[in-house]
Design a protein around this nucleic acid. Structure first.
Length: 427
RNA sequence: GGUGAGGUGGCCGAGAGGCUGAAGGCGGCGGUUUGCUAAACCGUUAUACGGGCUAAAACCUGUAUCCAGGGUUCGAAUCCCUGCCUCACCGCCA
């Protein structure tokens, strides 16, 4: 959430930032500014009344102790109590409206983010590895996988419907190997603490990271009287671990990694990536989350992105890293790098990780603060997140990039210790 | 699912209508002492939102906050209702 007080005092700056994201927010900003002003008119009035009430309350107490009559003061207070209650409800209503309006606005882009309408305006910042040249026609994974008997789309559909898939045999094993490989890398070498969170989260957590209230249609909600949703990403439980806390500044940065399945309804994505494992209702992901100070958050974004890229380097998969333009960024992000892996069958780079600095946007929603060394004021942390990596898409990339003419797939060297030393998947 | 007991500051724990932002202890921070460490002693120690002062802070001041939301009352941490959560026991169960 953007700070309503900041919006009031910097309407033009906020308007420009949101316009760069392709959003016409004039009405919303005006509403927030107006509500904020109204709020600051009511607060002193209300507090003045309460102050009088407190003072005469003391008078009553004193009179009673001395055995005097205090009926007159009591009567005056009675009237004022009604007034205070009414004004209090009015203030609650204004604050509710103000927060509701602010909650649906996305984050402001960082100054280093290229202004642009769409993914076409994203900027490539680096590229690693050479796409392999094939002396045969490389197959897409949706042909390779079923042919090897390790991916079963039909049976996935039988069990749960479209966009659900069964991995079996070496496919299931490869997926588990990838999860372990990624978690080991991030915990042993990159300093992240491994977490196994709940795979269901409540609405408060989803509000903290920004999925709610605006994107409920993208989530799977548990039926019945439960306030629970399937996690769309481990970013939600990991970032919310410290919701409502004030952290010791000396503990920062805090780095968490978790493997979770992720569940997304993919509402409105009909027709996109209908084939294969690219876009599923359920997929596995190893996530990276950092909570840090405002001073260090952009350095931490660079290292977090590098941590995710390292997975691809070790797996010897060609990728490029894109700096997203203002129009292509997610709701909560101030700045985002997408890592895209080469897919030979599509002859293109496809997103396999998205690494973002949300600055104080999520921290304000989730109320996560820190206090600099010992004393000092509590202020909002900066929260970062990134995929490290999406497991299903990594599996696709391995199948497609490491395929051989006979339809078998070589297992990347780095992964072999996790596959009982196996070098190849074949029929 | 049933029954019972509870939710007070970073933690433990008192308070049972006004004198309580809240005793006491622990922890944290600052200091005294010390060759260093420990111990001891002294001081200090919540958050949010307003107002004042300010370049900005510091600071001063007000209001709110004892799980949350309602209610009773001139006045609620304290009484009543609802919800949420925790613990214990029973049942069921990986």
């Amino acid at each position: 959430m953007l700070d309503p007080a900041y919006i009031r005092d910097h309407v033009e700056e906020v308007r420009t930032g949101l316009r760069n994201r392709g959003l016409d927010s004039d009405k919303a900003l005006e509403e927030i500014a107006t509500l904020e002003t109204a709020r600051r008119r009511i607060i002193p009035e209300l507090e003045g009344l309460r102050r009088q009430q407190n003072a005469s309350g003391d008078q009553i107490a004193q009179a009673k102790r001395q055995g005097k009559d205090a009926t007159a003061i009591q009567e005056a207070n009675k009237a004022r109590t009604v007034q205070i209650k009414q004004l209090g409800f009015q203030l609650d209503s204004i604050e509710y409206q103000r927060t509701s309006a602010a909650m649906v606005l996305p984050n402001l882009p960082h100054a280093s983010v290229p202004v642009g309408k769409s993914a076409d305006d994203n900027v490539e910042v680096r590229r690693h590895g050479e796409p392999r040249t094939f002396d045969f026609q490389p197959q897409p994974h949706w042909d390779l996988g079923p042919a090897l008997g390790i991916i079963d789309f039909e049976r996935g559909a039988k069990l749960a419907g479209a966009r659900f898939t069964v991995l079996s045999g070496a496919g299931a094993r490869l997926s588990r190997a990838l999860i372990n490989f990624m978690l080991d890398l991030h915990t042993r070498e990159h300093g992240y603490r491994e977490v196994e969170p709940p795979f269901l989260v409540n609405s408060a957590a989803l509000t903290g990271t920004g999925q709610l209230p605006r994107f409920e249609q993208d989530l799977f909600k548990i039926a019945g009287e439960w306030d629970l949703y399937l996690v769309p990403t481990a970013e939600v439980p990991l970032t919310n671990l410290h919701r409502g806390e004030i952290l010791d500044g000396r503990e920062l940065p805090i780095r968490y990694t978790a493997y979770t399945p992720c569940f997304r309804s993919e509402a409105g994505s009909y027709g996109q990536d209908v084939r294969g494992l690219i876009r599923q209702h359920q997929f596995d992901k190893v996530e990276l989350v950092k909570l840090t100070t405002p001073e260090s958050s952009y350095d931490e974004l660079e290292s977090l992105t590098a941590n995710a890229e390292e997975v691809l380097k070790r797996l010897e998969l060609p990728y490029r890293t894109m700096l997203l333009a203002t129009g292509d960024m997610g709701f909560s992000a101030s700045k985002t790098y997408d890592i895209e892996v080469w897919l030979p069958s599509q002859k293109t780079y496809r997103e396999i990780s998205s690494c973002s600095n949300t600055e104080a946007f999520q921290a304000r929603r989730a109320n996560i603060k820190f206090r600099a060394a010992g004393t000092g004021r509590a202020e909002f942390v900066h929260a970062l997140n990134g995929s490290g990596l999406a497991v299903g898409r990594t599996l696709i990339a391995i199948l497609e990039n490491y395929q051989e003419k006979d339809g078998s797939v070589t297992i990347p060297t780095a992964l072999r210790p996790y596959m009982d030393g196996k070098e190849r998947i074949s029929k």
